[in-house]
Design a protein around this nucleic acid. Structure first.
Lengths: 175, 175
DNA sequence: CCGCTCATGTAACTGGTTACATGATTTA
DNA sequence: TAAATCATGTAACCAGTTACATGAGCGG
């Protein structure tokens, strides 16, 4: 009885649970409108993933037809709910939760850019972080009703603010 | 002339530039002692990667022998330096820099846990974040001399602190 | 000499992306 | 009715992981 889920599987399962019955396309749209770039929500990922979860007994599907179109709509099975709950609780080992910040890795080797290039880099980074704050607010407006979405959004905002404060510290340190 | 590098390639190239001539094993050790869990620095990743970069002309290798052991030590070519600099400057599109926080995705679906389970989850998350702060300090001590490392470390510390503040806000919101 | 760690690799797998193919429905 | 876009899927590829194989050197 394997219950381990990848991050994408966990998120998908969680989303479907709240939007049953859900087609793969609906899941895809959801991923595309999210400002996160970790997953594209490409068809090539979602369709096989959902069939995979069904084969594992975590999803069950019924055929749907809008007009003459064929397709399948999925629901989370009790087994799937159990897997979702296990996923929610599980991977909280300290090692697993190190955040990945592409800015952080790049600053490690910033010595290989000239002073002017470094300044340009820092400026651009700060601009991008500001834009991101705006994107976060936009996205938040879409889900103002869901308190859990608001909490997740608060996380994104706080992290982005911390990175902004940091990038300003970087600028100060470089000059 | 393709100059695009994956994150792992960029980091590897940057590290080698500062530690020439470097063996794949030395690169591996470096990754293992880093507190980040994004890359394991497994042999299966590093050895092929470095050969790949050599074939692209970004690394050059000389055979080395400690005792009767055979092996190769690598240096970054001028072409490799150019690629490194391009990588440092390039992927700062807003979309690319969204941070991945496994806590954030999980909180989205926390509604599927009971109140007691949620509390336990929040407690564990907070404990892990605290441990991480300690890990960050340990790691910082290893590189106290390198100002760029210190900046990167400052980033990790600020983000972790922001996440800690957030998780406390989550606890407050849940009760 | 036995076992441990150092060091170099390879092979099979996996999860996700890109790019493509195709048919249905809506809109100009 | 032509073009756009909605919706469902497949195939080829790719970077990185896991697990394994192997041999050198070293300490008990």
């Amino acid at each position: 009885m394997r219950h381990e889920l990848t991050e994408l599987e966990g998120i998908t399962l969680g989303w479907i649970r709240g939007h049953e019955p859900a087609t793969p396309y609906a899941v895809r749209v959801q991923f595309e409108q999210s400002p996160s770039s970790r997953f594209t929500g490409s068809a090539g990922a979602i369709y096989p993933l959902m069939r995979r979860l069904e084969k594992r007994g975590l999803l069950a599907s019924e055929p749907t037809a809008t007009g003459r179109r064929t397709g399948r709509a999925y629901r989370v099975t009790p087994e799937g709910t159990r897997a979702l709950r296990a996923w929610l609780k599980s991977p909280l080992e300290p090692a697993d939760m190190f955040t990945i910040d592409p800015l952080r890795t790049r600053v490690l080797y910033l010595q290989h850019l000239g002073p002017a290039e470094r300044d340009a880099w820092v400026d651009k980074a700060e601009r991008c972080l500001r834009e991101q704050l705006a994107l976060i607010s936009d996205y938040e407006a879409l889900h103002a009703d869901d308190p859990f979405h608001r909490l997740a959004n608060d996380n994104a905002r706080r992290e982005t603010r911390a990175r902004l404060a940091w990038i300003r510290a970087v600028r100060a340190a470089l000059s």
